Amino acid sequence: GAYRMKIYDRDELRGQMSELTDDCISVQDRFHLTEIHSLNVLEGSWILYEMPNYRGRQYLLRPGEYRRFLDWGAPNAKVGSLRRVMD
């Protein structure tokens, strides 16, 4: 299947937008971000990790809009890595 997600540095799907279609071992290295404040999962399911290298707390992201970090259940906006959930 296809995988696509848009990430934003501000809440409510605002601010600088970056797009992912594959795994990202370090959000900071690739996008120069340490925080993601909202996101829109367009295709596929993903796991968001608090730390790089797929470590730390993890949150399942199904397709849909997440307008603030509380929407995916996190206590803050800190994001380290993102990985696709393969079928």
Results as ranks from 00 to 15, higher is better:
I36R: 01
R57I: 05
V41Y: 03
R62A: 07
L70E: 11
G80Y: 01
D29T: 09
I25M: 14
P52D: 11
P63R: 07
E65K: 11
H32Y: 10
S26V: 14
C24M: 11
F31Y: 11
G1C: 11
Q16F: 13
R83E: 13
S26D: 13
Y3W: 07
W46F: 12
V41H: 01
V85P: 03
L13N: 13
P63T: 07
Y66G: 02
I7E: 00
H37P: 05
V27A: 13
G15C: 09
L39Q: 09
S45K: 10
R14W: 09
D9E: 11
R62Q: 13
R14H: 06
N76Q: 04
G44R: 02
R68G: 13
R67E: 06
T34E: 11
R62W: 04
D11C: 04
A74D: 01
T21H: 06
R55W: 04
A2N: 15
Y49G: 00
D23A: 05
A77T: 05
I7D: 08
L33E: 10
L33H: 09
W46R: 00
L33G: 06
P75A: 07
P52A: 06
R62E: 14
R62L: 05
D23Q: 03
M5T: 14
H32E: 09
R62M: 04
H32S: 07
D22L: 08
S38W: 00
S45C: 06
E65Q: 09
M5Q: 00
L42P: 10
D23N: 06
G15S: 15
V41T: 03
T34A: 07
I25E: 09
G80A: 03
L70P: 13
R68P: 01
G56L: 00
R10S: 11
F31Q: 15
Y49N: 00
E19V: 04
Q58W: 07
S18W: 13
K78F: 12
N76F: 15
Y66A: 03
D29F: 07
G15Y: 04
D71P: 08
S26Q: 13
L33I: 06
Y54F: 09
R55A: 10
V85G: 09
L42T: 06
G80M: 08
I25C: 13
R68F: 03
V85A: 10
Q16P: 09
L61P: 00
M86D: 15
N40M: 04
L70C: 13
A2H: 11
S26C: 09
E43N: 10
L60E: 07
V79S: 03
P63L: 02
H32I: 12
E50M: 03
D23I: 01
V79C: 09
V85C: 05
L42F: 14
Y54P: 00
L42N: 07
V41C: 10
F69Y: 12
E43F: 08
I7M: 10
L39H: 01
G44F: 01
G73F: 15
D23F: 01
M17R: 10
M5H: 00
Y49D: 00
E12P: 07
Y59A: 07
M86H: 14
M51A: 05
N76V: 10
P52L: 02
N76Y: 04
F69H: 07
L60C: 08
M5C: 04
D29A: 11
D29N: 12
A74E: 03
R83H: 15
R30M: 11
A74W: 15
G15V: 05
Y66V: 00
G44M: 01
E35K: 10
K6T: 12
G56W: 02
P52H: 03
P52V: 03
Y3E: 15
T21N: 09
I25R: 04
E50D: 09
A2S: 14
E12V: 11
A77G: 10
Y66C: 11
R30K: 12
E19A: 04
R68V: 12
R84D: 14
W72D: 00
E65P: 15
G15D: 14
R4V: 05
H37Q: 06
Q28I: 06
S38K: 02
L61N: 03
L42M: 14
T21D: 12
Q16I: 09
S45E: 11
K6L: 10
E35D: 13
R83T: 06
V41Q: 00
Q16E: 09
N40C: 09
I25T: 13
H37V: 14
L20I: 14
R57G: 05
T34D: 06
D23M: 03
F31I: 15
V79N: 09
L33P: 13
P63N: 05
I47D: 13
V41S: 02
Y66S: 03
E50A: 04
Q58G: 05
L60K: 07
I47K: 04
Q28V: 09
D9F: 12
R67I: 14
N53Y: 05
D71F: 11
N40T: 09
D11E: 15
P52Q: 06
I25N: 07
A77V: 14
E12C: 08
G64C: 03
P75Q: 09
M86Y: 11
M51R: 10
G1V: 09
E35S: 05
L48P: 00
S81M: 00
T21E: 08
M17N: 03
V27I: 07
L61E: 00
K78N: 10
T34M: 05
L82Q: 01
E12Y: 14
K6F: 10
G44Q: 02
R57E: 13
E12M: 07
R55K: 13
R62C: 04
